[in-house]
């Protein structure tokens, strides 16, 4: 290749750099704007999500330190030991063993991982229990194809694809399904859990600010799974009480017939019902007494016994 003049070389480099800058800018733009409100996981609205986020960030940062070290080491190695003429760095083809270094990179990752492991264990056990002395609001969640049904056993009301919860009070979701497996997830309030027919799983979440949060199924369950969306409105306790009262007063009751319509394979909008036929729904407090639906033998389920 013919050698080019100095000016031209500089120009080419400049040009290259400019192009790289433009490219990098295009790619990085959405990343720079990365803390926008769309990043629901980064904007927790409750203690559960906050603890999960804290731990995620902690783990990410800890891991990033190691990764950064590895990449730096790799780049250094590549610069020093590329096969080029007159490489001043020593070529040691037989060097293949170093006890101290090998034990070092056995021990250091182990220590770092222990640093991640200990808070993991603590938080996992902590999040498995409701805060001491709290009186949770119980909501029984049933995932259907492809909609969410919610029952408030203490308020005697039922809703579809929409719930309201009071702020600063733990909500105990009792999750079950009358459909294939789904996952109940409200990202701003906290992590997900599967809903499975024939089993009731507890999950507690709490909102500490008012707002409207979206939740969706995170587990693929068929053609309209994309539409398994619901909303959670967190309001103050008085407005929550007003809301339940108004539903009890002004909305229709859910009959078994309504429920069987919900069981069909379709999507529906939001629904609110002033009561629901208690014996007909799977819930921990009332046992299983379902007659219709897809699991007719649930009356024998060990959960009841």
């Amino acid at each position: 290749m013919p050698k080019r003049g100095g000016f031209f070389l500089v120009f080419t480099r400049l040009q290259t750099r400019l192009w790289m800058l433009v490219a990098a800018g295009t790619i990085l733009m959405p990343f720079i704007s990365g803390c926008g409100s769309h990043y629901v996981l980064l904007h927790p609205a409750g203690p559960v999500a906050r603890r999960e986020l804290d731990l995620t960030v902690y783990a990410a940062v800890t891991m990033a330190v190691i990764v950064a070290f590895v990449i730096a080491l790799l780049i250094l190695t590549l610069i020093r030991y590329r096969d080029r003429p007159n490489n001043p760095h020593a070529y040691t083809p037989e060097w293949h063993d170093h006890r101290l270094m090998e034990s070092l990179w056995l021990i250091i990752p182990a220590v770092v991982l222990a640093a991640v492991a200990i808070p993991t264990v603590k938080t996992t056990y902590a999040l498995a229990r409701l805060p001491k002395g709290s009186h949770p609001l119980v909501i029984d969640v049933t995932s259907l194809d492809w909609k969410w049904m919610f029952e408030y056993p203490d308020q005697h009301i039922a809703t579809v694809n929409y719930i309201e919860i009071p702020t600063r009070r733990p909500v105990l979701f009792e999750l079950t399904a009358n459909s294939p497996m789904d996952a109940f997830w409200v990202p701003e309030l906290g992590g997900m859990e599967y809903t499975m027919s024939g089993r009731v799983l507890p999950l507690w979440l709490e909102a500490d600010r008012q707002g409207l949060f979206w939740g969706r199924s995170a587990q693929f369950s068929g053609i309209d799974f994309e539409k398994m969306l619901f909303h959670v409105r967190a309001v103050s306790t008085p407005s929550f009480n007003t809301w339940t009262a108004s539903i009890r007063r002004s909305k229709p009751a859910m009959t078994l017939d309504t429920y069987h319509r919900l069981l069909r394979f379709n999507t529906v909008g939001v629904g609110e019902y002033s009561s629901y036929p208690r014996s007909a729904f799977p819930s921990i407090t009332h046992g299983f007494g379902l007659s219709g639906g897809m699991y007719p033998v649930l009356s024998n389920h060990p959960q009841k016994n």
């Binding site: 996981l41 603890r51 731990l55 999040l127």
Partner: peptide, 9 residues
């Protein structure tokens, strides 16, 4: 990290 998995899963 189990709690992180609950959000990222």
């Amino acid at each position: 990290v189990v709690p992180a998995d609950y959000q990222l899963h």
